[in-house]
Amino acid sequence: MALLHRADIRPSKLELLAAWLPTRDWYEGGGDVTRVAAYRFDDPAGQVGIETLLVRSGDGPVHQVPLTYRGAPLDDADEWLVGTIEHSVLGRRWVYDAVGDPVYAATLAEAILAGTGQAEEYFEVDGRREVRPPNMGITSDAPVADPPTIGAVRQVVDGDPTLIVTDALELGVIRRPGSVAAPAGATLTGTWDDVRAPLAYAAPR
């Protein structure tokens, strides 16, 4: 489960992305960045926030941007740093393009291969949980009972799709859902508004 905070965040996530997205070769857009939908994964250790935003800029296509939020810099990951934010509850947070974060790779593989789904989001209100309904759905078309351990992340190839190469698997993150067909195999599919499109896939190495 993902505990949310009613907090002031500066700069906002969308402001951060508005500066960072134009530096990506796979980005197509112009104008203000707006949120379309989002989903989260759980970090089993409870240390890293993992959120994937679907955003668009102007009349451009929807882009998938997975992010991780950390309370300290991630070693050897400067090239994946989107920026830092000041969170009124949690303090300074380092925000990474999640494809370069091994915690994201492990949770993405579990979502695709084991069908773990998205984290339930909730607020703490007067000592009780107030659940926030999801604004999109994710499903796996090929969950297995005993998915392999992915091992270490060996390489990340940025693009559309962005490829995360691990010891056991190659994970593909589709940056513009609907623009790239997922190859045959285990696929994570998203549904939002009236759209259904592949988001990511996994293939054994």
Rank of each mutant, 00 (worst) to 15 (best):
H5L: 11
A7Q: 07
D8S: 15
R10I: 13
P11R: 06
S12T: 15
S12H: 09
S12D: 09
K13I: 11
K13P: 07
K13R: 15
E15A: 15
L17D: 00
A19E: 15
P22E: 06
T23H: 10
T23M: 08
D25R: 14
D25S: 15
Y27P: 00
G29M: 03
D32A: 15
D32G: 12
V33K: 00
V36H: 04
A37G: 09
A37Q: 07
Y39C: 07
Y39W: 14
R40W: 09
R40S: 14
P44Q: 09
A45Y: 12
V48K: 02
V48F: 01
V48N: 06
G49R: 00
E51F: 04
L53S: 06
V55Q: 00
P61F: 00
H63D: 00
Q64R: 07
V65P: 00
L67A: 04
Y69K: 05
P73D: 08
P73R: 06
D75A: 15
D76W: 10
D76H: 15
A77C: 09
D78Q: 13
W80C: 11
L81E: 07
G83E: 05
T84Q: 12
T84H: 07
S88N: 03
S88P: 06
V89Q: 13
G91F: 04
V95W: 01
Y96D: 02
V99M: 05
G100D: 02
A106N: 08
A109Y: 02
L113N: 05
G115L: 07
Q118R: 13
A119L: 01
Y122W: 10
E124C: 13
V125R: 12
D126C: 09
R129D: 12
R129V: 09
E130G: 10
R132I: 14
P133C: 08
P134A: 04
N135Q: 12
N135R: 14
M136T: 08
I138Q: 02
I138D: 00
D141Y: 02
A142R: 13
P143F: 06
V144Q: 14
V144D: 08
V144T: 15
V144P: 05
A145G: 13
P147K: 03
P147F: 01
P148I: 05
T149F: 12
V153H: 03
R154S: 11
Q155S: 14
V156S: 07
V156P: 02
V157C: 09
D160I: 02
L163D: 05
I164C: 05
I164A: 07
I164Q: 05
V165M: 12
V165T: 14
V165Y: 08
V165W: 10
T166P: 03
D167R: 09
A168I: 10
A168R: 13
A168M: 11
L169C: 04
R175I: 01
S179L: 08
V180S: 01
A181L: 11
A181R: 12
A184V: 13
A184H: 12
A186N: 04
T189F: 07
T189L: 03
D193R: 13
R196I: 13
R196K: 13
R205Q: 11
